[in-house]
Design a protein around this nucleic acid. Structure first.
Length: 587
RNA sequence: GCGGCCGUAGCUCAGUUGGAUAGAGCACCUGGCUUCGAACCAGGGGGUCGGGAGUUCGAAUCUCUCCGGCCGCGCCA
């Protein structure tokens, strides 16, 4: 409806431009908004105010001219000039009723549109957590956000591809491999001191035990050989990084490259399986899991470096190869090939993003933790240096999550064992509350996740408020049957005009706003606006429910009311579906 | 130091391309179940939108500045 009104205004302005009383207007200058106050009608536009200055005209006078030039529309009952020069639109009573019927007919598809995305190919990268441990609560927020954003983009006409980038190359993987191997040695019966910089989580013990089950004693070496002659660990006054690197080196020497790789692959596969399962249980799935290592073997990194070199963006210094990042807005130039010949993570990453473009994706959306913000300019600079448009990359930064149990903050650390995993969180509060709480706040706002509130099955918990509206309609429909009635669609269709009560009108207005909300949430990348909308819709429904009886004796009124209730239920279900939250029939 | 995010009711937060009288939940107070589910509803009190300046018909929103909080600035990933 909103876009239709914008089209009407565009037509009116075109007429005025043709008549020479106004310069031609850009379509984007035409904005129609829902009114905050019902006395101002259903929609309002400020075009006259915006254009008045440029046209050298009084806003109200211009507004009158625009109104006079508006084409007739079955949507609009009347228009008026208000305030400084707003144009208010009052819709025909049946405009919302027709929309309600469209909602009922469209069912699960209601709210979807195609104009915004227009079929554009977008690749959505999210989570991409290091496969060195289970998914934790901070990453959980990124998972919920990314999955929902994917749904939103899909619902508004984008062709969405979801991808998880696996950081399976580099030192963190080596540390995991060594950690798993040491736990494996313990399973074998060796006694050892675990390095302070190793991964100390319980899951690594499980990993070590699994390695033993799969390969028995094949990788066993005496603890004495493993630790002989190593530098001191941190507690002994040494450097924990040097120490763990020495262990990795020793492990390679004792096992040989092939067996080392077997242990690494075993650990990687096990971690990825965990992550994949945790996310799938959370309703988060990917079209592809993309290996960082594969970028090296496929030649993608060399290709990207060749492109940069061809553009003259690389140079040699101190034995390393550098990218002229400062020419693209970065603070300093960045190394892409280290003095020891290894490519950096940055080299992999720009290669990965170039490869995304070369796969034909117009828009690259990266959902990242807030700590990655310094990284965005660098990757974008790399893309631009390789001849890609700067706006082809869009990074969305997700602020951190802190867990609370009522007033008490739960400490979280990465490397120590006490971080809370997504899996544990889900077991404690349930998937629905989990996704809802992750999404209810703006992503650029740090999130305080209160476990007690999320768990509480009380009126303090906003999840149930929305689900309750859905369940209530189901309950009404059961009551209907129990009372010997049945819903008659034809009777409802013929009598929607009876829905004139203020509560019915409020519910109707809230319902038909849904397609606009989806478009706005998708365009702004703000899933939380859907949460707030659903709360509002549920509120209008609960108010109506308390004020009126649906199952009345008059079949015309009864069926009309049921149609509206079913429409609300449908939109609640569709909205919850976008959020990845279930819509239960009973609570 | 440079950069990113943020500061709105007692608390947690909405309010995005500048719009009409700044909203919601929680908490607090009052009222509503013999009725389709009270996990609900109705009503009430509560504000220097961090401070200041600017831009204009109009600023919580844009610009500058100051104060305060979180985070990032590797030949780590």
């Amino acid at each position: 409806m909103k876009t239709e009104l914008e089209s009407l205004l565009a037509a009116a302005l075109a007429r005025l431009a043709e008549a020479g009383s106004l310069p031609p207007t850009d379509r984007s200058a035409i904005v129609v908004e829902r009114t905050r106050d019902a006395r101002h009608g259903d929609f309002a536009s400020n075009v006259a105010l915006r254009l008045a200055k440029g046209a050298g005209r009084a806003p109200r006078e211009l507004a009158a001219e625009i109104i006079a030039a508006l084409p007739a529309s079955p949507l609009v009952a009347r228009t008026e000039i208000a305030g400084a020069g707003f144009i208010n639109f009052h819709l025909n009573a049946n405009a919302n009723l027709e929309e309600l019927w469209r909602a009922l007919e469209a069912g699960a598809k209601y709210g979807r549109s195609t104009e915004l995305g227009a079929g554009r190919k977008v690749i959505l990268e999210f989570v991409s957590a290091n496969p060195t441990g289970p998914v934790h609560v901070g990453t959980g927020r990124q998972a919920a956000f990314g999955a929902t954003l994917g749904n939103l983009l899909e619902a508004t006409g984008y062709a969405v591809h979801r991808e998880y980038y696996i950081n399976d190359a580099g030192r963190q993987m080596d540390i995991l491999t060594a950690s798993a191997w040491l736990r494996y040695l313990e399973t074998c019966g060796e006694t050892l001191e675990f390095p302070s910089n190793g991964y100390r989580g319980e899951y690594v013990r499980v990993l070590g035990a699994a390695l033993h089950t799969a390969h028995q004693e094949a990788f066993r070496r005496p603890a004495g050989e493993v630790f002989a002659g190593l530098p001191p660990d941190e507690p002994a006054g040494g450097d924990k990084d040097k120490y763990v690197d020495a262990i990795i080196e020793r492990m390679r020497a004792l096992l040989g490259a092939a067996d080392y790789q077997r242990v690494l692959d075993f650990a990687l596969a096990a971690m990825l399986a965990d992550i994949r399962n945790d996310l799938a249980d959370f309703g988060v799935v990917f079209d592809r899991w993309y290996s960082e290592r594969s970028l090296a073997t496929s030649g993608a990194i060399d290709h990207a470096l060749d492109v940069l070199r061809g553009q003259g963006r690389l140079y040699e210094k101190d034995g390393a190869t550098w990218f002229r990042a400062t020419e693209f807005g970065d603070d300093e130039d960045r190394v892409v090939v280290r003095a020891n010949g290894e490519k950096t993570y940055f080299a992999s990453d720009i290669a990965y993003h170039l490869e995304k473009r070369e796969r034909g994706f117009e828009l690259l959306v990266d959902v990242l933790g807030a700590d990655h913000h310094g990284y965005v300019a660098r990757v974008r600079g790399g893309l631009v240096a390789m001849g890609q448009p700067a706006d082809s990359l869009e990074a969305i930064l997700i602020q951190f999550v802190s867990l609370w149990r009522g007033e008490v903050k739960i400490p979280m650390g990465k490397r120590d064992a006490q971080f809370v995993t997504l899996c544990q969180l889900r077991e404690e509060v349930g998937t629905d509350a989990c996704r809802f709480f992750y999404l209810m706040r703006s992503h650029d706002q740090p999130l305080d996740f209160d476990l007690e509130l999320a768990k509480s099955r009380s009126n303090e918990n906003p999840v149930y408020y929305i689900q309750y509206a859905h369940a209530r309609v189901s309950s009404v429909m059961k009551q209907l049957v129990a009372k010997g009635f049945r819903y008659d669609e034809a009777v409802a269709r013929a009598n929607l005009g009876l829905l004139t009560d203020e509560h019915e009108q409020a519910a109707l207005t809230a319902l038909v706003r849904y397609p606009e909300v989806l478009r706005q949430a998708a365009a702004n990348r703000t899933p939380h606006t859907v949460v707030h909308y659903l709360r509002d819709l549920a509120n209008t429904f609960h108010t109506w429910y308390n004020a009126a009886q649906f199952i009345v004796d008059d079949p015309q009124l009864r069926n009309a009311r049921l149609a509206l209730a079913l429409g609300v239920q449908q939109v609640v279900r569709n909205g919850l579906d976008v959020l990845g939250v279930s819509a239960p029939e009973t609570m």
